[in-house]
Design a protein around this nucleic acid. Structure first.
Lengths: 210, 210
DNA sequence: TATCTTGTTGTACTGAATATATTTACGGAT
DNA sequence: ATCCGTAAATATATTCAGTACAACAAGATA
């Protein structure tokens, strides 16, 4: 599954017409992250980023739709895989197990070194307006995919609440796992066992004695 | 619980010094909601709101820290109750049951008529940047209260994941319930049974055959 | 060469949010 | 009545994210 040739507009080696790109998401991401470390997120303007990257301000918005998007490059990539994994699950498997497996598969993309920067800098999400917006965008994207999946699997007879509940809880588990994983420091391994653990205590329910 | 005299800086009848308020959150909220209906959220500027309310632009930011806050007045009020309800639960009750009861109690504040406007207009959250930010602010506030509660209840021996998981799942249930409730239209009664149902299928777990 | 396609640039603009100094309106004390 | 402290309201200026659009640059194609 690793080297799947994607429909990614950047990665394709198909014949490109028109003026060749002089920049890329990666270039801008690198420049931005450098500056975020140096001057903080709020202290870094888009002008700073594009100046460091050596392009004009407008170019930034050719690659990102908002300043906060820089943090979510890898997450957005993984999001593209989610639908594929869901579609690949066997139709007989219980919904939550299918979801759990798909999320686990997605978690494979994140190794011990490949921590989304945003998770290690998590506290700033709570204080910076634009980051909150960008974060919720991703939450909604993820949950909507899962909710639609659950809704179709459960069929039209199901109520409105259950698919929502399944989707939201699964994302809860994913986020909780990711945060715990990120704060684990250098001792963290893959994200996968964290997600598996979270999803398990979930499917099992909180009936326990805690 | 209805007419609890709060520590609300507006509702207090304690002797006020200095220039008396000429506006209020409610006045601005009303003006804003009128305009949102007339011209849509994005089509309404803060200048419009304050002009209709008959105050200056700066006054808006005396009552709200951001444009999107207008939608969350009641939600923020209810948030103040949450901590109180949590503290009032018996220390022997299982954590998730305590949380469930507290959230149910908070849900009492929302009758069939008192639907946060934001929920009936939900689709726009997904498309308007500032609203996403304001929404996640509330999510974080709620979850952080629950997480801290769960963490102290479970004691220092507990891991990092479990309190997060409990808090996030509970909020998942609350949000899923609130959305289903809001979309139920005129047939909706109180929010409470929705929350109870959601929290139940949660504590029970998703082990079922779905 | 002419044309089409696509990336990049420059310019102008809207509007949210911040900062700050100033003014207004009240209660309380002298 | 007059001053004083407090808090609300106002006026003004600035920063910066995000949008819109026209013009230009650089390649492929024919």
């Amino acid at each position: 599954m690793s080297p799947t040739p994607e429909a990614d507009p950047e990665a394709t080696t198909q014949v490109r017409r028109g003026r060749p790109r002089v920049s890329s998401r990666d270039v801008l991401e690198d420049a931005a992250c450098e500056l975020f470390i140096e001057k903080g997120y709020a202290g870094t303007t888009i002008d700073h980023i594009t100046q460091r990257a050596g392009v004009s301000r407008g170019t930034f918005f050719n690659y990102f739709t908002a300043k906060g998007d820089v943090f979510w490059v890898h997450v957005d990539d993984s999001l593209a895989h989610l639908s594929a994994h869901l579609a690949a699950t066997s139709p007989e498997a219980p919904v939550m197990h299918a979801i759990s497996e798909a999320l686990t598969a997605v978690a494979q993309d994140f190794g011990p070194r490949k921590v989304p920067w945003i998770l290690t800098q998590y506290p700033i999400i709570g204080s910076v307006h634009e980051l909150q917006a960008s974060a919720l965008t991703r939450l909604i994207s993820y949950t909507e995919i899962l909710r639609a999946f659950a809704a179709t699997r459960l069929g039209p007879a199901a109520d409105d609440l259950t698919p929502r509940l399944m989707a939201y809880s699964a994302i809860s588990a994913l986020v909780a796992a990711a945060q715990t994983w990120a704060t684990a420091g250098s001792s963290r391994g893959s994200l996968v066992p964290y997600v598996e653990s979270a999803m398990a205590s979930f499917i099992r329910g909180f009936n326990g004695e805690n």
